[in-house]
Design a protein around this nucleic acid. Structure first.
Lengths: 261, 261
DNA sequence: CCAAGCCATTGTCGTAAGACATAGCAACGG
DNA sequence: CCGTTGCTATGTCTTACGACAATGGCTTGG
């Protein structure tokens, strides 16, 4: 299902860490120094490519690895004792996976690839080294953690306080915005506006919002009937994101450049 | 409503930062070095005492300050455009408040004192200095952030996937455990087991769990009738926490020593 | 070309939870 | 002493949402 490639194989010195991919321009940092690069080189274990559907991290296990998403989309979730599943968030390129596992011993969530993914693999043991010796990287960790905390809080407020239509709209807008930031929006084949790839299943969205599959489906149908959002066969189309946000009282946070690990 | 005291007034050098209070033994770190102490001294702005009901941080504003809770209990919440309120978490002594505001420009949540509180005030501008020059403190920040992320995820799963009784039980157990860790459990005046101070209102709990006040009240009454939990007049009594957790399929995370900022 | 899965869709029905209204009960203040 | 305020407690009625069931449409694979 997956294989690990040697990070040093066949690439020049300055394409190390995550800088190999197009994510570089999205960072809010100047280029790393040579010293930092050398350190990150040691920290990085390799790259991993996994097929859609692969469980990368499994709740209850103790993974020795941390990841940064380079390509593809994923899903972070917990399974409750009653069998229910809660999707904690959707993962996009640039996301750092596993900070919690580095702190809590045992994993309290699973991570699954929703499409084919390419991951940058780091060694958990080296993580504390990173914090100790690389203040700028350390800043990045805190930045990402704070941002993650912010979005989890936002999710909590949505799941707790919004009604079905508003929940769905919120989730779609959030995903839309994130893909927009990553430059993943494309013009529709029929030429009517933009569309975004959205490979998840309705069940995933339902589990993210604390709704049943059926109710999610019906609510999506309602949004589609009102020409507010159309999500079918892996593609999302929002005719007017701003109007949608206004209709359902959703305030989007503005774009922020993000640091990379 | 509040006043700020000079941190250097009337106390010895080694009682600086947050180490002045009994929280010290709860840390997972060796004592700070003299150098670290000196740095934290600069970082610390003062202490602040606020009365119950005070809004310490207001959503939408830009606070130049970060806090560590020294004494008292508080509440972190967001207000949605539709007027609903979501309580994000309850704050206890040792909690670090404001990491997000240090990263996102504008505050996206409010913080309110539920009892009289004593807070350790830090300067936001000095925060990045801290990360840059104090690797051990920087570790602590990451640790706390990861833990916060963990609990937010847990909250999300609870609000999204549990039914009313289980939600309430989960919240009560979580608060009980936290107070236990802080050594705040007391023997009941009537001599029947332990009790914990719980100064919040039913509305607060309702807003934390995404339930209506009325339903929260009725669910609490049901738990009380079954002798599983009794929360009245600011005091919580759990006759058998383990049994409660088992009954409602709640797995408590074990105690972990926490670092201090 | 048909069978088997996997999802999406839609209808019916039941219930958990919300909305609203009202009452009870301290605590506080003049 | 009584009126106000802030919170808790119940009763009744309504509804958004979940549970269950059946269908249909792609996709994969022999």
């Amino acid at each position: 299902m997956s294989h690990i490639t040697d990070p040093s194989a066949g690439r020049g010195a300055r394409t190390t860490s995550c800088r190999a991919c197009a994510l570089r321009e999205k960072t809010c940092f100047e280029d790393m120094t040579e010293q930092e690069l050398a350190f990150m080189e040691r920290f990085k274990v390799g790259e991993m490519v996994v097929e859609a559907g692969t469980t990368v991290l499994l709740q209850g296990s103790t993974s020795p690895q941390l990841f940064t998403v380079l390509q593809g989309l994923g899903l972070r979730y917990t399974t409750l004792p009653n069998g229910n599943r809660q999707v904690l968030n959707f993962a996009f390129p640039g996301d750092f996976i596993g900070l919690q596992s580095a702190v809590m011993g045992e994993l309290c969530h699973s991570f699954e690839a929703s499409t084919k993914m390419r991951l940058c693999v780091f060694d958990r043991a080296g993580f504390w080294e990173l914090l100790r010796h690389q203040p700028r990287r350390s800043f990045a960790i805190s930045w990402l953690a704070a941002r993650e905390e912010h979005f989890l809080g936002d999710s909590l407020a949505t799941v707790g306080q919004r009604e079905a239509g508003s929940k769905i709209a919120w989730a779609l807008l959030r995903i839309w915005q994130r893909l927009d930031e990553l430059g993943e929006l494309q013009s529709s084949p029929r030429g009517n506006g933009l569309r975004a790839p959205m490979p998840w299943r309705q069940q995933d969205l339902a589990d993210a919002l604390g709704m049943s599959l059926v109710h999610t489906n019906k609510t999506l149908a309602r949004l589609r009937a009102k020409d507010q959002a159309d999500w079918r066969r892996g593609w999302l189309t929002l005719p007017d994101p701003e109007a949608l946000a206004k209709e359902y009282e959703i305030t989007m946070s503005e774009f922020q450049k993000r640091p990379l690990i």
